[in-house]
């Protein structure tokens, strides 16, 4: 039956595969980060307007983009989980959510730190920062709904549906806030509109975006393996294969 292909991607099969992929992604993230930071700090020139404080974009923009991207990928896996009824897809979404929330948290903090010298206040009701804050609420909503429901299968599908409803509303919320921002303070305040980017600045930022991507994948895969262990704790493949290895040599 067509559905069986998805049954193949069972937790037992994915666990070792994910295990092998994590070091690769972590290494890529580290290398890209070093390259990006080197360009960002040692090659990219000083910005004539904001001086050195603009160098925060090398961490703020990747985090902001990742927070948005992870939410969409999370909603994608939830949709797959609901249509194909595969539990692994829900586990993937649940593995992504905390990393996405942390990326949002980083984006908010680095945004505030960037705004302080430019505008003298810690929090700027800038369109993108405000949308980022709302995105954090959506992540928290997903995680707390999932945590509040005891039955894991129902929690997966309820939180999954919330993610789908959320992802449909994200663009609406974004444009409403965008419009709200231009109405009340005029367009000039838009802090995070990228300054006229020298090519090296742009290169540094894009490399850091790739690095953030690699890191998010690695972190999510690590969390996925743990979720698989937690949910398949009494499965015999876990007890025979995983536990002895963990106690003995490093896997």
């Amino acid at each position: 039956m067509a559905l069986n292909i998805w049954r193949f991607a069972s937790p037992q099969v994915i666990y070792p595969i994910a295990g092998r992929m994590i070091p690769g992604f972590m290494l890529a993230a580290a290398v890209l980060a070093l390259a990006g930071l080197y360009i960002g700090f040692f090659v990219a020139p000083t910005d004539f307007q904001q001086g050195e404080s603009y160098r925060i974009i090398f961490i703020h923009v990747p985090a902001a983009w990742m927070s948005m991207l992870i939410y969409v990928v999370m909603a994608f896996w939830c949709a797959i989980g609901m249509i194909m009824r595969t539990r692994l897809s829900f586990m993937m979404a649940l593995a992504l959510a905390p990393t996405g929330a942390l990326m949002t948290f980083i984006a908010l903090w680095t945004g505030a730190l960037w705004g302080k010298p430019a505008w003298g206040t810690w929090w700027v009701w800038d369109a993108r920062l405000t949308s980022e804050l709302i995105l954090l609420f959506l992540y928290i909503g997903f995680l707390s709904l999932h945590a509040a429901i005891d039955d894991v299968r129902r929690a997966d599908r309820a939180a999954g549906l919330l993610a789908l409803v959320g992802v449909i509303n994200v663009p609406i919320i974004y444009f409403s806030v965008q419009w709200w921002n231009t109405l009340h303070q005029g367009a000039s305040v838009s802090l995070t509109r990228a300054p006229s980017m020298a090519s090296t600045m742009l290169a540094g930022m894009l490399i850091m975006v790739l690095s953030a991507w690699m890191y998010s994948i690695a972190a999510s895969l690590m969390r996925l393996r743990i979720i698989i262990l937690e949910r398949e704790a009494d499965a015999d493949w876990v007890q025979e294969q995983i536990v002895p290895i963990a106690q003995g040599a490093k896997p």
Partner: peptide
């Protein structure tokens, strides 16, 4: 409240 208020914002 946590789930629904963000959707009310627009």
């Amino acid at each position: 409240a946590l789930l629904v208020l963000p959707l009310y914002i627009p």
